[in-house]
């Protein structure tokens, strides 16, 4: 398919108008702005994934998001203005400098959140190996462990029975707890890949093996993830428990 200039312009306007806009006054400070961690490798394998997730979050929830994804290196001081950062690639992540590792350690310990998404969806692949090695340097005291299905991540907005992504390489995600909260989430299933749409609104990547149902579940997991980072364990407050238990039984 060939794109004429007019077609592209129309698509851009359509995308802009369809953004769930509300009054924007405080800038990014009050919004959920995803940051993409810029590293020495292929740091942005799904460039349309996070903007689409931001769109979905804004459309489905009361959270205000920004369509712009900030690409920041680990050593960039501006990283601390964006407490949600994504580390992704479909190949191995090059070794980071100690200063960058130290900055990420500080970022996580003071409240930042790191989503590590394996765009290759290849269990035991180069990305996973390099990412685990990097996380071991960033959080030497922590260890990636399976996030249990009872975790508030699976009920922070949607009631979910488990994780998914563009692929289902493994049935679970893993995480590292820092100070009582999930500070690192490792997704082996190319979660962001399931969100990616092209400029015309078509899904960029096929979701396997579950098709569009699986994609919707992946989007819901993304929404839950955004909600969790902003509300933490809010859904574990006592007031919510009877409602959630009742709906879980339905």
């Amino acid at each position: 398919m060939r794109w004429s200039r007019r077609t592209l312009l129309r698509a851009a306007v359509a995308a802009g108008l369809s953004w769930p806009l509300r009054a924007r006054a405080f800038g990014d400070a009050s919004r959920l702005v995803f940051a993409q961690l810029r590293h020495g490798g292929r740091w942005d394998p799904r460039p349309d994934g996070l903007p689409r997730l931001a769109w979905e979050v804004a459309k489905r929830t009361s959270i205000e998001t920004s369509p712009v994804v900030r690409a920041l290196s680990a050593a960039d001081p501006d990283l601390f203005r964006h407490p949600f950062v994504v580390l992704s690639s479909d190949v191995a992540v090059p070794t980071m400098a100690d200063a960058e590792v130290g900055a990420l350690r500080r970022y996580l310990s003071y409240g930042g959140f790191l989503l590590v998404d394996d765009a290759s969806a290849q269990s035991g692949g180069p990305f996973e190996m390099s990412a685990r090695e990097l996380l071991a340097r960033i959080v030497p005291a922590g260890k990636l462990t399976r996030v249990p299905r009872e975790h508030v991540l699976y009920k922070s907005f949607y009631l979910l029975d488990g994780p998914t992504g563009r692929s289902v390489t493994r049935p679970d995600v893993e995480g590292i707890d820092v100070g009582g909260r999930l500070a690192v989430l490792y997704s082996p299933n190319d979660l962001v890949g399931a969100f990616a749409r092209d400029s015309l609104g078509s899904w960029e990547l096929e979701v396997v093996p579950g098709g569009e149902g699986q994609r919707e579940k992946a989007i819901r997991l993304g929404v839950n993830l955004a909600m969790y980072t902003l509300c933490l364990d809010y859904k574990e407050d006592q007031v919510h428990i009877p409602f959630i238990m009742r709906r879980r039984r339905i």
Partner: peptide, 14 residues
């Protein structure tokens, strides 16, 4: 509405 300001205050109070 959830925001980073909400998140940090809740974390502090909790």
């Amino acid at each position: 509405r959830p925001s980073w300001d909400v998140r940090f205050l809740r974390q502090l109070l909790k």
